[in-house]
Amino acid sequence: MNALERDLELQLRRIAVEVRKDVLRMISIADSGHLGSSFSCVDILVYLYFHLMKVNPAEPDWMERDRFVLSKGHACPSLYAVLARKGYFEREELWNYRKLGSLLQGHPLYINTLGIDAPSGSLGMGAGISCGMAMALKSLSLDSKVFCLMGDGELQEGSCWEAFMTASHWKLDNLFFVIDRNGQQMEGHTEAIKALEPLKRKLESFGLVCFETDGHDFSLIDEAFAQASLAKGPPKAIIAHTKWGRGITLAENGGIPVKASLSRNEVTILLDELNRESMALSEEGR
């Protein structure tokens, strides 16, 4: 990596830790929400919104923008925190997440929230919506891309595979499925509940060109997207290997339940760890 890229990477890492802090605050104020699966996809979201995607917060409905579909809608705290940081709405709004009357619903409601391109919450639908978007964009001769972030457990929904067949049949090479492969679902490990592996071969056999990457390393994420973008013709899948609860050691080690309810003391301890990471990152830049 050259110097500029190192700067960029450091910048993205700094944003990611700030996003994680906001997400932790949101979930702790709401006293509900999916901490671990929100944390596992923060780096992917930060990479997409602060580097790769063509968007304009000043003009959320800009026709030529890239589209983002959060198929794993329960991870919306991370998306909300990213959108606020991009300037789609005031950061103050984050503290109303999941509250009555809030713009920021427990799962993304398309009609309420600036920057949300598609509704989600019921699992397994984002991939199909993304296909429709990609088809429509192609028919309008726009070169906008569609990025669909999916959970791994969600792939147990059959509609995902209907969508992969559609994407492949229509050669939707403007469509990127990003799979947050954190290995966890509500009741345990994906491989124990209903195995997804060999996932890459499954996706490839459905006609997708598939890449694997470390979902927390920005330069590796960048490399995977760069390679994927070169493949003309088929739709792309990127399996991003991630850690559930990434950034909080206790969560990474399985010490926090899937739907967290945290005491104020616990939140302070968890926030301390993220604050230490923030400080370390600001040292790194000097």
């Binding site: 026709m63 589209r67 398309y110 391109d117 598609a118 509704p119 639908m125 991939a127 199909g128 919506i129 993304s130 296909c131 429709g132 978007m133 990609a134 088809m135 429509a136 964009l137 309008l140 059959g158 509609s159 209907e162 969508a163 067949m165 559609t166 049949h169």
Partner: peptide, 19 residues
């Protein structure tokens, strides 16, 4: 979209979201 009514509705949704 083939014999896939769920996908049909999702695809319709995606298309409507693009206008």
């Amino acid at each position: 979209v083939g014999i896939a009514e769920q996908n049909m509705i999702e695809v319709a949704s995606g298309m409507a979201l693009v206008g």
